[in-house]
Design a protein around this nucleic acid. Structure first.
Length: 430
RNA sequence: GGAGAGGUGGCAGAGUGGUCGAAUGUACCUGACUCGAAAUCAGGCGUAGGUGCGAGCCUACCGUGGGUUCGAAUCCCACCCUCUCCGCCA
């Protein structure tokens, strides 16, 4: 949510900055709503003040046992207009709220301007893609003989689900455990276990709702045809970030660093046919998520730091990657600035997204009403950041493809071996 | 799922439908007293919004949403949450 005061006072600047994200902001429509709001709100409050004063008089008169019928008649005259105002105002405020809740965050000034992913800027690269002396196969082919089963997943659930069996399932678990250990032990994040089903308010808080309902799975209790509005989380960012919703935090409690390993559920509406082969784009995948709740002055330093926390995983796994600064047109709804990490996938001969780290500034905090007591003793909105550290399914893909051998076996990266009972190579036996 | 109790300011805890945004205690802040502290005394101490250059004034908020009323923390309805007991359950 953008600051409504900013919208009221600097609407043209806001419109221009939103325009850099490719958004047409109808300023005239907004201004018209605002003008009406101002008129209606002022009038409503005026009438309420009159009513309150008269009602107070009635109370005093009756208290003294005197006749109140004159005042009663007077207050009666306010009735119709007041009732009309009290009905119209909330409706109008909701309309304005719907309008602003659908506006994305303003890009930070350092974000490159661009219309789509072609406008993203490479910041740095790490590692050298391995050269293969045999024909490289993709993770679907390498994975099949070590327990990666798409057909089973499809039979159980449908397309975009996979079933892991045996050593590859263990490798998947090892990756998640390893990531969680690095983020907690080396980078100071507090490990969390969170609900995977959350309510509407949480989804609104982080920005998935009201605009992106079609990307979510929503759930009903058995037997209910309708009921509470509850959703499967598309990322642990939602429970982690919302864990501080509607709170006023002590300044010395910040920064808060949280991490969680969780499944993520995404309907992938609109992805139409992209990445249908393999594990790249699934309805369900695991992720280790990082979230930071920080004071505003420190949020951009925290963002750089968080990108480093994600990079550390790839470096330890020995996976080549590059860091991309997303351009204005490619950023997510809640982000003011985003870096993507893209890992090298030899079979695709390209880099693919494996992590996304964003500073949302006060955008989510305003929606969640999360504040802290600043040095002046005033309540001030916090800044929130989130980042993948990393996507487990895509990390699995990257390991399989980058560590494959000519005989179909896959070498286990050294840092994962303690999580695999010392296993060094996964042999293709199944 | 069944039975009961309850949700009020940071916390605790009052509140016959009428000068209640809310007593009181406690915590916290400021000042006085003190060499300093404690104790004591005085004052201050919620959030959001509107309006004004400003001191300020006004509006809303007592779990949430409706309703009754000139007026609702207080009455009515629905829902949510918490606690206790019973049942079921990993």
């Amino acid at each position: 949510m953008l600051d409504i005061q900013l919208l009221r006072t600097q609407i043209d600047t806001v419109a221009a900055r939103l325009g850099s994200r490719g958004l047409q902001f109808d300023t005239a429509a907004f201004l018209a709503l605002e003008e009406e709001r101002k008129r209606l709100q002022t009038r409503t409050q005026e009438l309420q003040a009159q009513r309150n004063a008269l009602s107070k008089q009635i109370g005093m008169l009756k208290g003294r046992g005197e006749d109140a019928s004159t005042v009663l008649a007077e207050v009666g005259r306010l009735g119709d207009e007041l009732k009309a105002c009290e009905q119209a105002l909330p409706a109008l405020l909701e309309k304005i709220n719907d309008f602003t809740a659908a506006l994305p965050n303003l890009p930070h000034e350092s974000v490159p301007v661009g219309g789509d992913e072609a406008g993203n800027v490479e910041v740095r690269r790490w590692g050298t893609p391995r050269s293969f002396d045999f024909e490289v196969r993709d993770h679907v082919d390498v994975g099949a003989p070590i327990g990666l089963e798409f057909e089973t997943g499809a039979r159980l659930s449908g397309s975009r689900f996979s079933f892991l069996r045996g050593p590859i399932a263990r490798l998947h678990r090892a990756l998640a455990q390893f990531m969680l250990d690095v983020q907690t032990v080396e980078h100071g994040y507090t490990e969390c276990y969170t609900p995977y089903i959350v309510n509407r308010e949480a989804m609104v808080g982080t920005g998935q709702l009201p605009k992106f309902k079609e990307d979510l799975f929503w759930v009903l209790r058995g037997g209910d045809e309708e009921g509470l509005e509850q959703y499967l989380i598309p990322t642990a960012e939602i429970p982690l970030t919302n864990s501080v919703r509607e709170q006023v935090l002590a300044a010395d409690a910040l920064p808060i660093r949280l991490t969680a390993h969780s499944p993520c559920f995404r309907s992938e509406a609109g992805s139409g046919g992209r990445d249908v082969r393999g594990m790249i784009r699934q309805h369900q995948f695991d992720k280790v998520e990082m979230v930071q709740i920080v004071q505003p002055e420190t949020s951009y330093a925290a963002l750089e730091q968080m990108v480093g926390h994600a990079e550390a995983i790839l470096q330890k796994l020995g996976l080549p990657y590059r860091v991309m600064a997303l351009c204005t047109g490619d950023m997510g709804f809640s982000a003011a600035k985003t870096y993507d990490l893209e890992v090298w996938l030899p079979a695709q001969n390209t880099y693919r997204e494996i992590s996304s780290c964003s500073n949302c500034e006060a955008f989510q905090a305003r929606r969640m009403q999360t504040r802290f007591k600043n040095a002046q003793g005033k309540n001030e909105l916090v800044h929130t950041l989130n980042g993948s550290g990393l996507a487990v399914g895509r990390a699995l893909v990257a390991v399989i493809e980058n560590y494959q051998q000519a005989d179909g076996s896959v070498v286990v990266p050294e840092v994962l071996r303690p999580y695999m009972g010392g296993l060094e190579v996964i042999e293709a036996v199944l």
